[in-house]
């Protein structure tokens, strides 16, 4: 293996600038980029840095294990590269082609170096191939991981965005729920509602489910949990915004909403909340 690594290294060192030029040409040929363009000078810098690190990694650690500490520099370069390219909108295969496009110019040169030695050529090609494959796969992995991070961050943001607790009046809170209710969201909703109840000292909380697309037994259970928790703290809950279909579903499913007050619209719920806190709305002058 070290012999092959040696051969690879000689090729890399001897014809570096030549190889670099070919590699860049190869890359500009691959995959026409839609919108997500990258400057050629940047590509050149990245390629040059990669070749430098690649050489020193082979020299120090051999071509065996890219997870080893010797390959740390190369790995870091590749993960930075695939992260930035991922954010620029490159697809995983476009990102991986950065590494894979090195194959052609490299193998051509290996072939020339081992012109008389078929067995040596096969071996050198095989080891270089393996190495580049694992590096290419590594970029894909990082690319995917970066995407997953973006997705999970967005999920978190959505979770925070979609559960505002608003104060309608002194002692009356409203919680307009939007989107599907699952266990994780219910937990967040419950916590923020109870926290606000404590902060504002509100007696009544209106949970508006106009924005909840479907209600199944699980969702109903989550809602009831929130209502019970609020009741335990001394606040009363009113559920509003129940659409006709949802009312039918609730009855068909046999969900028992118990003694929870339910109203068709937020306005009705607000009216009853005002009444319960000893207030009312009256017209001050004849309007249109």
């Amino acid at each position: 293996m070290s012999k092959n690594g040696q051969g690879l290294l000689e090729v890399l060192k001897g014809q570096e600038s030549d190889l670099l030029a070919d590699w860049i040409k190869e890359q500009s040929g691959v995959a026409p980029r839609r919108g997500a363009s990258i400057r050629e000078s940047e590509v050149r810098d990245q390629c040059k840095e990669f070749l430098g690190l690649f050489q020193s990694a082979i020299r120090d650690g051999g071509a065996d294990d890219i997870q080893g500490p010797r390959w740390g520099g190369v790995r870091e370069l590749l993960s930075n590269l695939s992260r930035t390219r991922g954010l620029q909108g490159f697809s995983p295969s476009e990102t991986a082609s950065f590494v894979f496009s090195l194959k052609k110019p490299l193998f051509t040169r290996l072939g020339r170096a081992h012109a008389k030695d078929a067995e040596g050529l096969a071996e050198a090609t095989w080891s270089a191939n393996q190495l580049l494959d694992s590096l290419g796969l590594y970029t894909t992995e990082v690319h995917q991981k970066a995407r997953e991070e973006v997705i999970s961050r967005q999920q978190q943001e959505m979770l925070e965005l979609s559960t505002p607790v608003v104060k309608l009046w002194e002692g009356i809170l409203a919680l307009p729920m939007i989107g599907t209710l699952d266990s994780a969201r219910t937990q967040v909703v419950m916590e923020s509602l109870l926290q606000r109840i404590v902060e504002t000292g509100s007696n009544i909380a209106i949970i508006d489910i106009t924005g909840v697309p479907t209600v199944d037994t699980l969702t109903a259970q989550h809602l009831l949990k929130t209502v019970t928790a609020a009741r335990l703290m001394g606040a009363e809950c009113i559920i509003s915004g129940i659409r006709p279909q949802i009312a039918q579903t609730i009855v068909h499913l046999g969900v028992d909403l118990g003694d929870v007050t339910t109203k068709a619209s937020l306005a009705d719920a607000f009216a009853i909340a005002l009444e319960r806190t000893g207030r009312g709305v009256r017209k001050v002058r004849a309007g249109s």
Binding site: I197, A229, L232, M233, G234
Partner: peptide, 20 residues
């Protein structure tokens, strides 16, 4: 009358199935 229950306590009791 039970007063001043904290949010965390209320959630725990509900999860334990004790609705008092």
């Amino acid at each position: 009358v039970v007063v001043g229950m904290r949010p965390a306590v209320a959630i725990t009791l509900v999860e334990l199935g004790l609705s008092l």
